[in-house]
Design a protein around this nucleic acid. Structure first.
Lengths: 221, 221
DNA sequence: GTCTATAAGTCGATAGAC
DNA sequence: GTCTATCGACTTATAGAC
């Protein structure tokens, strides 16, 4: 697993020989990223200091600059790590489905995968929501591009369902997509691990979104 | 209008005499609050400096301390101003409905009022979502209490609909409430004034949430 | 790779003139 | 009520020892 994985930021040439080379550096790097994700999401971009982040990763502030050239570069990597994790998880869940799977079922699976991924990786995922606006302009611009790519996947998924006649054709699917993702991501703000398991949550979300909360009234005939 | 309105924070005794007294101070105070809301939501709590906020209100940093004892006090007022505005707007919209109004219609109206209020007051409203986590512990604790009070209104509204048989009884209404508010508040992240008018948005949101996005399948009979 | 020490700048907040 | 001037603490980032 992950033997030749490309970590955002540094471009690693090839993992060909020496299976254990430069692993030590990557372990530290990952520890810094995890600490940074937590502190950025708790205190904001300006509020989380390099000293805080270093301390949370058992280091001193100066040492961070061996791994990341600046605070700005650090948060860009953390930010992208978040969307990358979610989109990868959802893509894999979709790829595992048999080709004959209905659009309804695909949407159910995508909701569950998205929810599972963001809740399991809370700090990284919530960054994009909570302090996307706080980072320098260029960082934000690039991040939004990467986010939009994932968002496009959902639009395709919903459009396919409309074409298959499984979603009501009178809906604005762009709006539906935004509404759906907004509702799912909001779970980051309130979900606590001691509550319902994520699978249950995904089922109930799909039920509300799919069938609606009102009791159906038969079209007066 | 608003002659005797109670501004959060300072307790104003009575507006009895002198209709123009101490109005000058309140105008400045309001200008500071508006500037602070915008900058806090753009840059976070730590990222928006007192110098920035003062400049946006055409003042110098030192002058802010005549109106607010500290940066912490300032953001608490801004934060509360946000939820107060929304809950007031929704309460008024509900109060204007005839007593015979169905639960469905009440929910529709509440959604429209909530959406209208947060979108018209974006900077104030988004604070609670985006940097609630960045403020000192005690400020956050107090703010969450005020937020919960508004949230309780929605639970009552949904519960009444269940009792009236207008919402499917198999739903977890606490979860439904959270889901609904999450989806509505997410509009703060993407809504642009040049898009659909808020009324249209509210109708489509209610349609998705109320009737669901899937085309109904008749229960195989 | 990580440390210490420090440069150069900014922060919140206060004091006192006007 | 708003200003200027300033204090002390804290910030990102760098330099060089180990």
């Amino acid at each position: 697993m992950g033997a030749g994985k490309t970590v955002t930021g540094k471009t690693v040439a090839s993992p060909a020989r020496d299976p254990d080379r430069k692993v030590k550096s990557d372990v530290t790097r990952q520890k810094v990223l995890t600490a940074a994700a937590r502190l950025f999401s708790e205190r904001g971009f300006a509020g989380a200091t390099m000293r805080d982040i270093a301390a949370a990763a058992d280091m001193r502030a100066g040492s961070l600059y061996y791994h990341f050239p600046s605070k700005t570069d650090l948060i860009e990597v953390v930010l992208d790590h978040g969307v990358l994790h979610v989109s990868t998880a959802v893509e894999q869940a979709m790829a595992a489905l048999p080709p004959s799977t209905s659009c309804r079922a695909r949407i159910r699976v995508a909701i569950a995968a998205h929810l599972d991924s963001i809740l399991q990786n809370g700090a990284f995922a919530s960054l994009s929501r909570h302090l996307q606006a706080q980072v320098p302009d260029e960082i934000r611009r690039r991040h939004v591009e990467r986010r939009d790519a994932y968002s496009a996947f959902w639009l395709d998924l919903l459009q396919a369902a409309v074409d298959a006649g499984e979603i009501r054709a009178d809906l604005d699917i762009r709006l539906t997509r935004t509404f759906l993702l907004g509702a799912l991501n909001a779970a980051l703000d309130w979900y606590r691990p001691d509550g319902k398991p994520v699978e249950t949550l995904a089922e109930e979300f799909t039920a509300i979104l799919g069938e609606g909360m009102f009791v159906p009234v038969p079209p007066a005939r």
